[in-house]
Structures are given as structure tokens and as C-alpha cells.
Amino acid sequence: MRLEGKSAIVTGGASGFGAGIVRKFAAEGARVMIADINIEGAKALAAELGNGALAQQVDVSRDESVSRLAAAAIMAFGKLDILVNNAGVSHQPAALDDISEADFDRVFLVNMKSVYLTARHLVPHMKANKAGAILNVASTAGVSPRPRLSWYNASKGWMINATKSMAVELAPIGIRVNAINPVAGETPLLKTFMGEDTPEMRAKFLSTIPMGRFSTPEDMGNAACYLCSDEASMVTGVAMEVDGGRCI
């Protein structure tokens, strides 16, 4: 029960890595708001977990939607201890100059602007409490970029840099900011990363991971739990690779 008495928001929490983080947080005693554009998925997971889990629809790319999320969480919990910026998208693998402006804008809004918007609406609350933990779910793509995913890679590199900058600025106030860098896993984004989901493409992708397997939602939940718990009270500005050796 390492998160007993804590409250958390997990964006993109209805599926994939986000759901893994939600499940771990709930198992460790936290009350969790599952924030997702897929409200039915969020409601189903909240009902399954119980323990005060709540569902909240959010479009993390829109200021008014994130503002409603922040207000709902503070009203429900009274105090927010943990924010996990997990929601993310990619574009299909393609030459960097062939990616459409619409696809670029979507990656920018969901992967980057969302971190600004959640900070804008929730960091003041954490400042008032002089405590809080923020976790950004970045990617190995921000450290060791894969070809034909240039703008996705860039968005995750931005997130890693934003994490470190936020950590330096907020540390004196008592707010810690970290990131985790998963390699691809069994999530809705896997097919996007590979271009096509075939046994051959999976084998090729797995050959780049020394441990020979994808990241799992459970892997992300375990890492997130540590970084957001009081056990990591001296850890801030870290981008932890949870990637089976992919970035070595």
C-alpha cells in the first residue's frame, strides 16, 4: 500500500500503459481518476477497480477540457497528489517530409501541448500544497530515435526536456517531476510504430530489444508507482528507461 491516502490523475488511463499504471496505483491504495477521451473505457475500468476510482472524459489537447478535468479531480479528492501525463499518439511511419500537417498537429497537441495544459491547471494546486509528483510518459523514441517516426520522436524528446526543466523549477517548492521511457508494447500504438502488425515485423522490432520482449502495462505500472511514491522522495528530473536495454 505504497500509495495509500494518495490521489492521482492518469490521462489516457483507460487502455494500454495508462491502464497498467491505473491498476497498479489502485492496488497500492491510491484513489485514481481515469481521464480518457474514451469515457466508456474509463467507466468500465473504474467500475472494475472500485476503491474510489473515477472516470472523467478529457481531450488533453483542449484547454477547456483539461480545466474541467482539474476542477473535477480537486472537487472529488480535495487534494491531488499525483499527475500522470500518459495520453499520447503517433503518426504512421513515413518520410519526415511526407507527414501531413494534420498528423503533425495532432502529435504536437496530444503529446506536447497536453503537458503544458495539465501543468497550467494543476501545478498551482500543487504549489499551494507545497507537494506533488508529476510523471510524464515519454519514450525510448526521445532518446534513440527510430527512422520514419521523426515528429513522434521529436515530441517525446521535447517531453523529456520539459520533464527536466519542470523538475528544476518546481523542486524548491516540493514538487517532483520525472518521466519513464518505455519501448513499444502491447498497446493501441504498437501497429502505428511498426507500420503493420505481422510476425515478421514483430520479430524485427524485438531484435532491437536485448531482453527480447515488449514493455508491458505492468512494467509501466511498477516503474510509475516507484517514481510517484514517497520511496522516490529524492528522485526528480529522471527519465527512466523501462525498455529491456533498447537504449544501451
Results as ranks from 00 to 15, higher is better:
R2T: 05
L3N: 02
E4Q: 12
S7P: 01
V10E: 02
V10Q: 01
G13F: 00
G18L: 12
G29V: 06
G29Q: 09
V32T: 10
V32Q: 03
M33L: 08
M33N: 08
I37W: 03
I39K: 11
G41K: 13
G41R: 11
K43N: 14
E48M: 11
N51W: 07
A53S: 13
L54V: 06
A55K: 06
Q56L: 07
V58M: 13
V60Y: 01
E64F: 00
S67I: 05
S67H: 14
R68T: 13
I74D: 05
F77Y: 11
I82N: 03
I82V: 15
V89W: 01
V89A: 09
P93K: 12
P93H: 10
A95K: 15
A95Q: 08
D98C: 06
I99S: 08
S100N: 05
F104T: 08
V107Y: 02
F108G: 04
L117A: 12
L117T: 15
T118I: 04
H121K: 06
K127V: 10
N129C: 11
A131E: 02
I134S: 02
T140S: 12
T140Y: 07
R146C: 10
P147D: 06
R148Y: 12
R148I: 04
R148Q: 15
S150L: 02
W151I: 12
Y152I: 12
S155I: 15
K156A: 10
G157S: 15
I160S: 03
A162F: 07
M166A: 07
E169Q: 13
E169L: 11
N178A: 09
P182D: 10
P182M: 08
V183H: 12
K191V: 13
K191W: 03
T192F: 01
F193R: 09
G195H: 10
E196H: 14
D197R: 07
D197Q: 13
E200F: 07
A203L: 05
K204M: 11
R213A: 07
T216N: 04
P217C: 12
P217L: 12
D219P: 01
A224L: 06
A224G: 03
E231M: 02
V235E: 09
A239N: 05
M240C: 06
E241K: 07
V242W: 08
C247Q: 05
